[in-house]
Simulated scan of single mutants.
Amino acid sequence: MNKRTTAKVSLVAIGAIAISVTAIIAGCIEVEEPKLTTITLGYQPSTHHVAAMVAVEKGWLKEDLARLGIEYVDIKVFPTGPPMMTAMMAGELDIAYVGLAPPVAALYRGLDARVVAAVNNEGSALVIRPELVEEYEKVGLPAVLAGKRVATFPPGSIQHTVLTRWLREHGMCPVADMDMKAMGPAPARTAIAADEVDAVFLPSPSPAMLEIAGDGVIVLWSEDIMPGYICCGIVASGRMIREHPEIVKQIIRTHINATRWVEENPAEAAEIFVKTVGGDVATVKRSFEIWDGSFIVDPHLGVESALIYADVIFEINREEFEAHGIEPLTKEDIFDTSFYDAIRIG
């Protein structure tokens, strides 16, 4: 072996040793989470998400996350769930308080995120114009909706998914048998008050607001449409889950504390809701008194409901999904319960 060959072998050997030593050292050093100073959190103007509003108003979210280096929490309010998932898919939203159906619908289309906590069950109602009450008493539900204009949240939302499932179970097609209109809560309330739609299916506090204003009559709560279903949860982006797990875990802790506070202080929670979103305190307090929902935090409770939503959304889009080889989502596709489980065990 000549000197040049010997030199090459020596350099290779030295390089190999250097790589090995680097690997050993790296294996002994705990890898830190990438630096993050701002997160974006979204919710909707519904009492379903009042725990988020309380956490912000009380300063708990800011204080809890500051210990992890977060200097600013950017709050964004969305009218419904589908645009929240559009924002998350675009990298514009890190954490979302949202119905479970929108992330399910978005996961079918490539959303990188998981449900990490639960927020509430049920909590929506079908409201009809007062002029339709006599017809409703004669023909009942859902027959009174035949040929009518019905407003609810857009396709892919929890309200649209739950209502569609119920109509189909009763032999009605939401496309052929009625004029289903996609609207957010404020436009839908305005539309039924102006006789531009005949019925709405909306989350609280909208049903109470319409009834108190004399613009509608509550004829069916969501517990009778899909008993026991879990409505909303907290969704974390895949980036937050992979790169900032401690922040995700703290957000869930803060959510748990805020939820407990809401349950113990509904009157003050109503005041915070009005301060945040607007409206009348007495009406929001009344909404808390009459709604069929309750506040929860355990994501395991949402699994059965989410899988039903996954099936409903798959059936609605079966032809398209099957053409692209897309199969129904599983629990693992939708949930990451590890954060909540760690908090519960700890």
Results as ranks from 00 to 15, higher is better:
E33A: 12
G346N: 07
G293A: 02
G147E: 06
S222Y: 02
I251Q: 08
I19E: 05
G293M: 02
N317P: 11
W60L: 11
I290W: 04
I39L: 07
D224P: 06
P102Y: 01
E315N: 14
E320K: 01
G171V: 06
T330K: 13
G15K: 02
H300E: 12
G110V: 07
V104M: 02
S338D: 08
A113K: 04
R260M: 15
S237P: 09
I158S: 14
A270Q: 08
W60G: 08
I225A: 01
D292T: 05
H49M: 09
V21T: 05
A113R: 07
V162P: 09
D198H: 13
H255K: 00
T37C: 04
A151K: 02
L167H: 12
I345W: 03
V262W: 12
W261A: 02
G15T: 09
Y43A: 14
C231I: 05
I234Y: 10
G59F: 00
H324M: 15
L210F: 04
W166A: 00
A16Q: 06
F295D: 06
V144Y: 02
F78R: 03
N2W: 13
G184Y: 12
D298N: 15
D74S: 07
T6A: 15
R114N: 13
I192Y: 10
I212D: 12
R253H: 05
D179H: 00
F321K: 06
P266Y: 04
P328Y: 05
G228M: 10
V56P: 10
E32Q: 15
M89K: 13
N121W: 11
G42W: 01
G228S: 08
T5Q: 15
V197E: 12
E315Q: 15
N120V: 10
L210P: 06
P174N: 08
L202M: 15
I290E: 04
V116F: 07
V31Y: 11
G81T: 06
E271P: 09
I39S: 05
L41E: 13
E327S: 14
V235C: 11
R168I: 07
T86Q: 13
K148F: 05
F201E: 06
M172I: 09
F314E: 09
V197Q: 07
A213D: 13
W60S: 11
V262R: 06
M209F: 03
K285Y: 07
E134C: 07
A176I: 08
N121P: 08
L11R: 09
L141E: 05
V139R: 04
E327L: 14
G42K: 01
K35Q: 14
G216E: 05
K275V: 05
V104W: 02
E30M: 08
A151P: 07
Y97S: 13
E134V: 09
F339E: 03
C232G: 11
G346M: 00
F273Y: 12
E327T: 15
T161N: 04
V197G: 11
P203I: 02
C231M: 10
H244M: 11
R129M: 02
R260G: 14
S20L: 15
A236D: 10
M1T: 15
T276M: 09
N317V: 05
P328K: 06
S157R: 01
I218D: 04
V274G: 03
E71K: 12
L11D: 01
N120Q: 08
A101K: 10
I326M: 04
E30Q: 10
V77Q: 12
M183L: 14
K331L: 03
L329Y: 15
R168P: 09
A125P: 12
P328E: 07
P102S: 05
